[in-house]
Amino acid sequence: MVSPAHFIALSVILFVIGAVGVLVRRNAIVVFMCVELMLNAANLAFVTFARMHGALDGQVIAFFVMVVAAAEVVVGLAILTAIFRARRSASVDDANLMKY
């Protein structure tokens, strides 16, 4: 039998993969994908708990997260394209002008 603990464990694993990816990868596209991974790990946890408690709140929030994630990707990719045009690079470390 697959218990909620299994779903939560998968969610944690996905979140950690995403977090490590955000921290260690330089390519902005990959960083984006890792962010999506973390968001979806959170969605999985939401849905699991909603199912566990027999309530719909968590499932509704999962939809909200998906909408926000879609919007975020649109803006983020637009910025990324603009940076790539200006600097010929998609590395997040090259975009370091805004500092002290």
Partner: peptide, 8 residues
Amino acid sequence: KVQTGFVR
């Protein structure tokens, strides 16, 4: 100096 400009 904490504000390094590195997103990561």
